[in-house]
Design a protein around this nucleic acid. Structure first.
Lengths: 184, 184
DNA sequence: GAACGATACGGAGACAGTCTCCGTTTAGCA
DNA sequence: TGCTAAACGGAGACTGTCTCCGTATCGTTC
């Protein structure tokens, strides 16, 4: 890739991150281009669809996910607390941007989604948490990681749409957790 | 209201129902107007915002909700089956149109939503089902009807976004149900 | 049944966002 | 230094939203 192309690509990603954080995932792409100081053509050459841009933005987000997962797995405490701790982390991670929960949870089951690879990082993280709980015999064995992601993603989507705060989300997560855990 | 106004209003609603069913809630309103044989101005005078049109469409849907609720309440069987039966009915009701689950579940907590009244019919229906289960001592007492709607709505939203079929939705609903029911 | 004011109509057009096309510019190699 | 493939950028085509206002219609009154 030519040096100027790379430079522009990076600037577009940087602007997009800014604009999306301010205005959500459906902000104007022309605005992104303008703020990056490039023409619309340049933006669309690098990122033919909005999704491709979103994907690029998420690159650093992926690192954050693994980091957060490690932290949760190091958590010392009961199974229910561990699971809830993961749920809250999960919700926070996918709710960084307005519209994020829907976008990510939806992509999770779509083989054609351009952001699928990024979402898999999330479902793998869920799997790691689930494995720990399974090993301790605390989790239902008939539910897989993607299903867990969908349940928690559903709660996060609703919370995002309705702008619920953490205190309103918590009881919903508790219900999901209790539905997933085996009776002690 | 003048006779011609009423006539046009009805035709717009009819067309909108058609177009929304075919193309989802974000279909072009100009297309709705065209199919109704009226100008865009007429449409926007009757329905200043898309939501108002959606609200009008839902009028008949409300009847369907009460009818469905009655049917569920007449259900003879165990508590878990009753709850799951209601969940599946609920999901079906809010998933009649593409984008419906998100729209309805979101409106449920928004006092300014133009479709709030319609959504309340749904949360009241959930309340009725919850009351039955509470009376039988089968349901957690610390969760209210709106929270139940949000949980099930979240599942429905994810299913709608990712076009999951009923067989993929069922296990998710089971988790929610088990999280809500008290251990026997 | 004619006249009139209130009400409603409709479509042109302003505005905003998406995306393409193509003439112009530039990087980087020989 | 010159050349060419690669990249740029912005005008503009296209689509959807929504408003404005001149025109048409309703229905009431006499």
């Amino acid at each position: 890739m030519r040096a100027d192309a790379k430079r522009n690509r990076d600037r577009i990603i940087e602007s997009a991150r800014e604009v999306f954080r301010e205005q959500g995932y459906d902000a104007s792409l022309d605005e992104v281009a303008k703020r990056a100081g490039v023409g619309a053509g340049t933006l669309y050459r690098h990122f033919p669809a909005r999704e491709n841009l979103v994907d690029a933005i998420m690159q650093t987000w992926v690192d954050r996910v693994t980091e957060a997962t490690d932290k949760v797995l190091a958590f010392e405490g009961g199974e229910r607390d561990l699971l809830l701790h993961w749920f809250e982390t999960y919700v926070a991670l996918i709710s960084l941007h307005k519209g994020g929960p829907a976008k990510i949870t939806c992509a999770m089951g779509d083989p054609d989604s351009p952001i699928l690879s990024k979402c898999q990082v999330l479902s793998e993280a869920s799997q790691r948490v689930a494995d720990v709980l399974l090993e301790r015999g605390a989790l239902r064995a008939d539910v897989d990681a993607v299903q867990i992601c969908r349940l928690v993603g559903g709660v996060a989507t609703v919370a995002d749409n309705a702008t619920l705060d953490a205190s309103a989300v918590r009881p919903l997560l508790e219900v999901v957790a209790d539905g997933l855990l085996l009776p002690a």
